[in-house]
């Protein structure tokens, strides 16, 4: 059952509460870009309710400047998240929190986990990834599997001037090169991570990009990796949405059984 949770400073959220005794871990689903808290194709609402049905209180809310939160941000978003966690913990009593979401939500979840020791898990859906060499290799392999008629067009694209703006600039990714040390900090604290990439990004095609971005730590047991090239960025198909809800539910249940 959902309840309204007031979060202060003009913000509120919808807290999906378990019917029975809740686990000691709560989940926060962050905004996917500018989409309000219900998420693309209502994915946020359904994910939160599925997690609650499995015993995990799950909160969705709008960050400043999105959806129902009318004012823009007057402080860093990681501080906004910290304030939200205060209210969430006061309401649920949950000692541990998992945060995450799609795209910008993954970026913010990563930053929030670095700042806030209450965050014990992050699910990053199309989160940061660099490793241009591996990306280009995978793209070349994919191109070679296509008929030669596609090759000429690809060469034209390669010869075109580079894009002015990269994904890293549009998003709020960590400073280049800082990712391995940041991941090590999170792992040292016992933070669990789910990194799931879809075929809907313009920057991820090869799993080795993760090693190139995050270093050897990405192979640790704390990091679960999924690559779903058949899915798009916002899970346009119902079957993909259900698969994602099941995947996150299984990951939360296995990593946070208490």
């Amino acid at each position: 059952m959902d309840e309204i949770l007031h979060l202060g400073r003009g913000m509120f959220g919808l807290l999906s509460q378990p019917a029975g005794v809740p686990h000691s871990t709560a989940v926060v689903v962050l905004n996917a870009g500018f989409i309000h808290r219900s998420g693309p194709f209502r994915l946020g609402t359904r994910l939160a309710r599925a997690l609650a049905a499995a015993g995990y209180p799950a909160l969705r809310f709008d960050l400043p400047g999105i959806g129902d939160t009318l004012p823009g941000a007057d402080r860093p978003l990681v501080e906004v998240v910290a304030g939200v966690l205060d209210r969430l913990q006061a309401r649920t009593g949950c000692a541990r929190v998992v945060v995450g979401g799609i795209c910008a939500a993954a970026d913010l979840g990563w930053q929030a986990a670095l700042r806030d020791a209450r965050i014990d898990g992050v699910f990053l859906l199309d989160g940061p990834a660099r490793g241009r060499f591996w990306f280009n290799l995978a793209r070349a392999r994919r191109l070679l599997r296509k008929p030669p008629a596609h090759w000429l067009a690809a060469v034209r694209r390669l010869r075109a001037p580079p894009a002015d703006v990269t994904d890293a600039q549009l998003r709020d990714w960590p400073a280049r090169g800082s990712e391995p040390a940041q991941l090590d900090r999170l792992r040292a604290r016992g933070v669990q991570l789910l990194m799931l990439f879809t075929g809907g990004t313009a920057y991820f095609l090869h799993p080795r990009q993760l090693r190139a971005t995050f270093g050897r730590g990405v192979r640790s047991e704390a990091v679960a990796i999924e690559y779903w090239p058949e899915c798009d960025h916002t899970y346009s198909l119902e079957a993909h949405r259900q698969r994602l809800i099941d995947c996150i539910g299984t990951w939360v249940a296995s990593r946070f059984p208490d």
Partner: peptide, 10 residues
């Protein structure tokens, strides 16, 4: 026009 080449099928 789907960038991931998806087809509906649902």
């Amino acid at each position: 026009a789907h960038p991931a080449g998806l087809r509906p099928g649902e």
